[in-house]
Simulated assay, not measured.
Amino acid sequence: MTATADWVDVAAMLRDPYETYARLRAQGPVVRVPALGRHLVTGFAACRAVEADQATYSADVSGSGATMARALGAKPMLRQDDPRHEAERAPINPGLRAKSIRATWVPRFAHNAESQLDVLRERGPERAELNRDYAAPVAARNLVDLLGLPEATPEGMQRWSHAFIAGIGNLGDDPDVWARCDAAQREVDEHLDALIPHLRRHPDPSMTSALVNGGLPEPAVRANVKLTISGGMNEPQHMITNMVWALSRHPEQRDRVLADPALWPVVFDEALRWLSPIGMYPRETTRATVLDGVDLPRGTILGVVIGAANRDPAVFDHPERFDIARSQRAHLGFGSGVHLCPGHWAARIAVGEIAVPRLYAALPGLRTDTRREEAWSGWVFRGLTDLPVTWGPPAL
């Protein structure tokens, strides 16, 4: 018999989902949640099993797939299974490998971080807010460069991303959300109208060029550019603030990494596990199956809650702790299987090797400013919306 959690409070999850995740895991690795109209998969092994079997657990999800296609103009690779998913992803894979990122994009990532550090310094340690003044603009600038949209602005990129994400989640069919989403679609398409023919004649290292020259039909090119805009902002942006938030609350670990910069990739991975920016994504069963002992009929909508799986005590010792000294275990922060996030090396390098280390090097004594309020939001996508920071010697 499938466990049911009729006690789940969605509003509480938006504030902080981790207590709910722990209670769900205690009920079982797969639990039906009526308030969400789906089964939530919270166990690490169960989440891995879903991603290992796309024939049984499809990414082409009813409802969610339809809103994503509506929001982006066509169904992108994220809501497709192989072989279509593989065909649309193949053009961008070579340019997103670690070697390619280091050879092509590291100078741009460094330039973007340094430019935005000037904004933080101008704000000063009494007024700086890390999300607004650094994390979001750096993520947006990097995305403008990776996509090769020369006329786009960081402000426009942030606005488009927010509009597309709202549209993808618009299961309630809110007309205001669709209006914002449609406006973002038109603006992006205007950029692509001129850019696509140019890139056919003059290929460059950008992701858009790879898609344009990868043999894909034009609607697929446009949908996957918009998919990258929707998803390419959140994780890098939230990882910058998450890492600073975590280190500010664990000063002994912050001191360790400042003394040994080789630990920055470890900090990135542990923050990604502990505070997963992408908390959940959907799947749908294509046939009756049994997942970790739970019977699931064909057509069951699942929420693969990697934010919960990354704190599964069956896999991680004291998972509720942020601990850069823990034994390194594979987590699910970037997903797994064939749908592993293609931009994971770009995020690791842009954030873990450049944006956050340079932030601490430029602003000695950087820490969250507890005199001002911080704010978190979300559980499907979760991150800090406000993170006041300060630097310099602590006040006496």
Rank of each mutant, 00 (worst) to 15 (best):
W376M: 13
L302T: 07
N112L: 05
A136Q: 04
H238D: 13
D118L: 14
G303M: 09
Y18G: 06
G63I: 02
A375G: 00
P219F: 01
D6Y: 05
S206A: 08
R79F: 14
K75Y: 00
S206P: 08
E353R: 06
Q27K: 12
E374A: 14
S161E: 05
A325R: 15
I240D: 03
V380G: 02
E88A: 10
G231V: 13
G43K: 08
A110T: 15
G214L: 05
N310H: 00
G43D: 04
G303W: 01
I278D: 08
R132V: 09
R84G: 06
N224S: 12
R123M: 13
P393M: 09
R372F: 00
W178L: 14
E51M: 13
R108Y: 13
G378H: 03
A113G: 10
V380P: 02
D317S: 12
V144I: 15
T300G: 10
W7F: 09
R141M: 15
A194F: 12
P94H: 00
D53L: 02
D118R: 14
A395Q: 15
L359E: 09
C341M: 06
R121V: 13
P388T: 04
M13N: 05
A46L: 12
G73L: 07
D317Q: 08
S327A: 15
C181Y: 04
F268E: 04
H85I: 07
N93C: 01
A49P: 10
D295A: 15
A184F: 07
V380I: 06
M233Y: 01
H318V: 05
P175F: 03
P297R: 08
E373F: 01
M157V: 15
D16L: 03
A55T: 08
R70F: 04
R254P: 09
A59L: 03
V356T: 12
T300W: 04
V10W: 03
L396E: 13
F44K: 10
V144E: 01
A362I: 00
T300K: 02
V138I: 15
L195G: 05
L332Y: 08
S206L: 06
G215R: 08
T385P: 00
Q27I: 04
T385C: 06
P94A: 11
G343H: 10
V380K: 04
V41S: 01
H344S: 13
G333S: 08
P282K: 00
N93V: 14
S209M: 08
V8C: 05
V351N: 07
T370C: 06
G232M: 03
V50D: 05
L96K: 12
H339F: 13
N242Y: 02
A3T: 02
M1I: 08
S248F: 07
G337Y: 02
D369I: 09
R254I: 00
V290K: 01
R222V: 09
N234S: 09
V315P: 02
